[in-house]
């Protein structure tokens, strides 16, 4: 094991993967999207002049982007669309008199650009009905179709916006932490079986680096949560799980510190390490059953794999996981060698 840790090839591999993840994660633009629509209210039968602000689009004066509104089974095309800037449009709608809207109905705004692909903003316009009966005939003159942006890009999600790139930092840091904790767990078992002090060094340093990555995971997560959920800390099972993991392993280090005799420290720490890891894993699996999470994939929130353009994220995400895990093990191997040298010096 120590020989493998000294080998160089896997360190180069993880640097390459990490560099790829960082560069590719910053290189690709976000796919075009709608950021703002005003006004957000309209009344049936009126002339509606919508000004639409978009993000990462490149409209030309010659382009004629198709703009339409859609709410359930109703859709309207804009009667006139004027490109005001590369990221701005003005669309004029002449709303029919009686659409059968009872009360207020939300509409999605969809913009279909030639090169920028189809973008939409959910429930961004509310139309108040005046006449609950539906007797007007209305058909969209232009063909409505959905197509993707011509350039490779990351999904543009409302609320997430550019922060979707944090997917390549926050989540891989947690993955790396879990891998390191597993390694620490395995080393603890190996120590109890063999009584070789080197496994104790492995277990301790792996847990130490795991805590370092856990702290980074919490910091990146808090930044992300502050941007998307509006607060750095919420009562979310995944956040609590992370906090419990940190507390457990901090206690592990206090336990190590309070034992002086070396073999006994190794043994007691290994027993607590195994005990705590098993319960921690159960905690991670049990807790989601008890309450909902704001995280993707829980409590009705879509997971990243559900996003239509996830294939642009996936390879970069996995390289970041490999890269961060490799770097973690590298830091760990340096700390192990340092500890072993210190021991040698003391003897």
């Amino acid at each position: 094991m120590l020989n493998l840790l000294r080998k160089r090839w896997w360190k180069y591999v993880s640097i390459a993967f990490l560099l790829f993840a960082i560069v590719a994660g910053m290189y690709f633009p976000l796919s075009p999207g709608i950021t703002k629509v005003s006004p957000d209210k309209a009344i049936e039968g009126s002339v509606l002049e919508l000004s639409i602000e978009t993000y990462n689009t490149d409209f030309n004066k010659e382009d004629e982007p198709v703009v339409y509104l859609r709410g359930d089974d109703l859709s309207f095309c804009a009667d006139a669309v004027i490109v005001t800037s590369p990221v701005g449009l003005t669309a004029t709608f002449i709303l029919p008199d009686s659409l059968g809207i009872n009360g207020v109905k939300p509409f999605n705004i969809i913009v279909d650009g030639a090169t920028d692909g189809t973008m939409f903003l959910r429930s961004s316009l509310f139309i108040t009905g005046r006449n609950p009966s539906n007797d007007s005939e209305y058909a969209c003159a232009k063909n409505i179709e959905v197509h993707a942006s011509a350039n490779k890009s990351f999904p543009n999600r409302v609320i997430l916006d550019e922060s979707i790139r944090n997917l390549f930092y926050h989540v891989p840091l947690w993955f790396a932490m879990l891998f390191l904790l597993m390694f620490s767990f395995g080393s603890s078992i190996a120590y109890l079986n063999s009584n070789k002090i080197i496994y104790d060094v492995f277990a301790k340093e792996a847990a130490f680096v795991a805590m370092l990555f856990g702290a980074l995971g919490i910091v990146t997560g808090m930044t992300w949560a502050n941007f998307t959920w509006g607060t750095p800390w919420t009562n979310d099972p995944k956040l609590n799980g992370a906090a419990v993991g940190m507390l457990t392993y901090l206690a592990y280090f206090v336990l190590r510190g309070s034992l002086n005799q070396r073999d006994q420290r190794a043994k007691v720490a290994a027993v607590y390490g195994i005990f705590a890891f098993v319960i921690y894993i159960i905690f991670i699996f049990v807790l989601p059953r008890l309450s909902d999470s704001l995280h993707p994939g829980n409590g009705g929130n879509p997971a990243f794999s559900n996003y239509d353009l996830d294939n642009s994220l996936r390879p970069i995400f996995y390289s970041a996981v490999i890269g961060f895990t490799g770097i973690g093990f590298w830091i760990m191997s340096l700390r192990i060698r340092y500890t072993l040298l210190l021991d040698k010096q003391q003897e």
């Binding site: 609590n240 419990v244 507390l247 457990t248 901090l250 206690a251 206090v254 336990l255 309070s258 034992l259 006994q264 007691v268 027993v271 607590y272 005990f275 705590a276 319960i279 921690y280 159960i282 905690f283 049990v286 807790l287 008890l290």
Partner: peptide
């Protein structure tokens, strides 16, 4: 049993047990 090996001070007993007892408490 673990805390007893480390001199069994009350602080150690608490910090070792609270994080691991959380799943039980929540259930």
């Amino acid at each position: 049993a673990i805390a007893a090996k480390a001199g069994n001070n009350a602080t150690l007993m608490a910090i070792l047990s609270f994080p691991v007892i959380l799943p039980l408490i929540l259930i």
